[in-house]
């Protein structure tokens, strides 16, 4: 039996301008899941439900074996959560926060915290109000990582960071993620980060899960073809997600890029000029457009 870091089943939730119906989402232990979606897709709602802060109207949520939100206290001892709209206390120092977090979590690793302090180039005695946005994000991550949580939930951690800070944060996360026992859920609308870090991709749009798959398989299944069409032919082929035609040239995107899709193109009389592997961002856009 496979054990899950979290397992959401049949989740319904309804807000005035947002609804989520029968969402099923699970993350096997030790995996890194990237949660992709535009703003308002339901990423934060999903994460809040996982943290026990929002109770769904229907459905079951289990995190690290604990029922949510009923057993959130026990669960949160093992979950590390950081989000882009989370702030630390301005008037206090980072060291104060470290001491506070340490007082809560006995497993807080002082040595590791010191190490992270150095790597992130942070100063413990500095007050939070004197930190840049990038430094604040790093400070939040430090507080979470030094606890060595079993499940790491990061909500848009790289939003608003300059490219250098983002690279530092992502590299550090990549380092941390080498630990196979740790599961991570990572939401972002920045697909580059997700592409770099995730084992699994979950696409969310308007409260619906559009895709949930292993990253490599997923990326492999999408492809873009530039084809030459016989004169007068309409570009029309089963398995295409989007087709753009200009005269006799067509750009065809598919999410069924198995061996016979190019063959099918050839059989339809198309000449394949180029085949491109798509970036996650391109897939993301194509996917969202299709679903709307």
């Amino acid at each position: 039996m496979q054990s899950f870091a979290f397992d959401m089943r049949g989740i319904d939730i309804r807000y005035p301008h947002f609804a989520m119906e029968n969402l099923n989402l699970a993350l096997p232990q030790g995996q890194v899941m990237g949660l992709v979606g535009v703003n308002g897709a339901g990423k934060s709602t999903t994460i809040r439900m996982l943290m026990g802060l929002v109770k769904p109207a229907a459905g079951q949520i289990e995190v690290l074996g604990y029922q949510m939100p009923a057993q959130q206290v026990q669960a949160k001892y093992e979950i590390g959560f950081a989000s882009d709209d989370m702030r630390l206390y301005k008037s206090q120092t980072l060291q104060w926060h470290m001491d506070f977090v340490h007082s809560i979590y006995p497993q807080f690793d002082q040595a590791y915290a010191k190490d992270l302090l150095k790597r992130f180039e942070l100063i413990g005695e500095q007050k939070i109000k004197g930190l840049s946005h990038g430094q604040r994000v790093k400070a939040s991550l430090l507080l979470v990582l030094a606890r060595r949580p079993k499940l790491l939930i990061l909500d848009e951690p790289t939003t608003g960071l300059d490219p250098v800070a983002r690279d530092e944060v992502i590299s550090e996360l990549a380092e941390v993620l080498r630990d196979d026992a740790r599961s991570v859920l990572f939401s972002s609308h920045n697909t580059h980060d997700i592409e770099k870090l995730s084992d699994q991709i979950a696409f969310l749009d308007r409260g619906k899960l559009l895709a949930l798959q292993d990253k490599e398989t997923y990326l492999d299944s999408w492809s873009r073809f530039r084809c030459q069409l016989p004169p007068g032919r309409q570009a029309d082929i089963t398995g295409a997600v989007s087709i753009r035609q200009q005269g006799q040239l067509a750009e065809i995107i598919t999410d069924q890029n198995n061996h016979d899709f190019p063959q099918r193109l050839v059989q339809a009389g198309f000449t394949v000029l180029e085949q491109h592997r798509m970036s996650l961002e391109e897939i993301f856009v194509a996917n969202v457009k299709r679903s709307r």
Binding site: V73, K76, I79, G80, A82, D85, M86, R87, K90, I104
Partner: peptide, 17 residues
């Protein structure tokens, strides 16, 4: 207002606590 609520609620407490 200062968005520290999210930080506190990420700690092992229920919103009721």
């Amino acid at each position: 207002k200062d968005q520290t609520l999210a930080f506190v609620l990420s700690l092992p407490v229920t919103p009721q606590d």
